[in-house]
Every structure is written in structure tokens, then in C-alpha cells.
Nucleic acid binder design. Structure first.
Lengths: 144, 144
DNA sequence: TATTGTTATACTCTATAACTATA
DNA sequence: TATAGTTATAGAGTATAACAATA
């Protein structure tokens, strides 16, 4: 990135506002009622990475360690996550998803499909394509 | 929008996760320490629309009326917003921004510029262009 | 002495329910 | 009777500070 144009500034202002509004919608229109967005996000991370320590998860989700302790405890209580001692460092803990979590994610994907189908009617093909391109960039921005 | 491909589903999953993480970052890396993201968003809306009733603001921000009452009260307490009786319907209230709010938004824009300049180093020109295209679509999605 | 994770506590933001005033 | 806004109260989610165990 070389230089910030006026357009860039206006875009980020709009981006900021849109992200906050969307996050509020997502917080309420959950595909799974019993799981918070962050809990869902942690499961997604575990599905991609296999396993991780609470500290790693906290850094990835941009949450403080105590918050991640709480989230992992919640997920463990619901049988979606397993906590095991780290093989080499006994201070650390290894968190991984259970088979039940995989089943739940599959079901969640199905529900999300329905929710999407409704929203889809309001966007054009081109707009969807734009979002598809933007998703990885937003991911990158989220943990830059 | 005609049909949902596998790519679309994967993109939305990633989009959801990225939006939630970004919203947490934005909640903390505020350009103005004393204002919440929603309060900033309300000021932005007022700057664009001129004035609005609490009910209109609540719908636009996807927040319940009592929450908007609180937000407007906060902004009024800080001298950033004016509450005036509606000329025709005495149940309603007209909210508009003060001159102080305009000055604050200008200063905020300057700080955001600095913050952006740091993030900008991590993105390519092409990635910025993608975000610039996506911003209006996200806005649309936020209040679809 | 530094680091990982946890416990205890408090704060911020938003929601729901009940109330007031006006239409 | 319905609607706009408010007040009172509660809940979800996250943070900071203090602590325990291990490196």
C-alpha cells in the first residue's frame, strides 16, 4: 500500500460503520441459538487448525486470555471441545473439537444456507462476487 | 442473486468470522476513546442525514429504542447532539448534531488517518481496492 | 524471574418489560 | 387503541487485577 486517497478514507469510514452494524445483526440472527459468535468462531478455528492452546485462540480471536478461558469452559461444558494436557509443557493446555462439534458445524452450515438464501434475494450476483473477494482481505485485516 | 455456490457458503462463513473479529478490534482501537463505535456510527449517520428521530436512528443502527435513548442521552451530555421537539408530532423528538460534533468528526478523521497508515503497510493496493468495492455492499447487507 | 492459564470482580453495551404522553 | 420515547432492570460478553503452577 503506497498512499491513502480521499476515497480510501471514505471507504474505511463506511467500512467501520458497516462492520459494527453487521456484527450486531450477526450477534442476534445466530444460526445456532445456544452459541455466541465468538464461540462459533473458535469452533471454526479449531476445525481449520485441528487443535490449539487457549493462548493461541485468544490471540487469534483478539480476546484476552481470561475471556478465552471462559469460552473454552462453555464449549467444554456443551461437549463441543476437549481439554488435554500439553505433552511437553505442563503449563499449557491443548484444546480440540469433538465429533459432536463436527456434527453441529454441519447442521449449522445447513441453517446458514437457509438464512443466506433469504439475504441473497437482496443482492445482485456482482455484489456477491465483491463480498467473496473481500472476505479473505477482511480476514487478513482482522488479525493484522 | 440466483443461486448459492459452495464458494459463496465458504465466503460467508469466513465473512462472518472476520466481521466479528474486526468489530472487536474496532471496539478497542477507537480513534476517540470516549465514544463507543455505535455512538460514532450515530454521529456519522447524523452527519449524512442532517437530523433524525430516535426511532429512525434505532432502526438504522439495528438497535432497540431504549438503547438509542441511552446513546442519544450520552451524546447530548457530551454536547455532540441536540434534542428538539418535533414540529408536528409532539411524541417525537428530532436529534441533530452540534458544531462541536463536526469539529470532533474532523479530528477523528485525522486520527483515523494515522491508524490507517499503519494498517496500510500490511495490505497491497489490490487488497485495498477490494475493500473499497466491498464497503458499500457491506453497508447494504447491514440493513437488508 | 517469566509465562500459561485460571479465578474473582467489574464494566460496557444492549435487550426486555413496564410506564408516560401524544395521536 | 396504537405509537414514540423513556425509565428500570437484567443479561451477555469482555476486560483488568490478582493468583497458582510450571518453565
Amino acid at each position: 500500500m503506497t498512499k491513502l486517497s480521499e476515497d480510501d478514507l471514505a471507504a474505511v469510514s463506511s467500512l467501520r460503520s458497516a462492520v459494527m452494524r453487521l456484527s450486531r445483526r450477526l450477534r442476534h440472527q445466530r444460526v445456532d441459538e445456544s452459541l455466541s459468535p465468538t464461540e462459533m468462531s473458535v469452533l471454526g478455528t479449531l476445525a481449520r487448525c485441528g487443535s490449539a492452546t487457549p493462548g493461541e485462540l485468544a490471540r487469534k480471536e483478539h480476546v484476552q486470555p481470561p475471556s478465552m478461558t471462559r469460552i473454552v469452559a462453555m464449549l467444554e461444558g456443551k461437549g463441543l471441545v476437549r481439554r488435554e494436557p500439553h505433552p511437553e509443557d505442563r503449563r499449557q493446555v491443548v484444546v480440540s473439537q469433538t465429533e459432536q462439534a463436527e456434527a453441529m458445524l454441519a447442521e449449522s452450515r445447513r441453517k446458514r444456507n437457509v438464512w443466506l438464501a433469504q439475504l441473497a434475494e437482496g443482492l445482485t450476483d456482482e455484489e456477491w462476487a465483491t463480498l467473496r473477494d473481500a472476505a479473505p482481505v477482511l480476514e487478513k485485516l482482522a488479525h493484522l
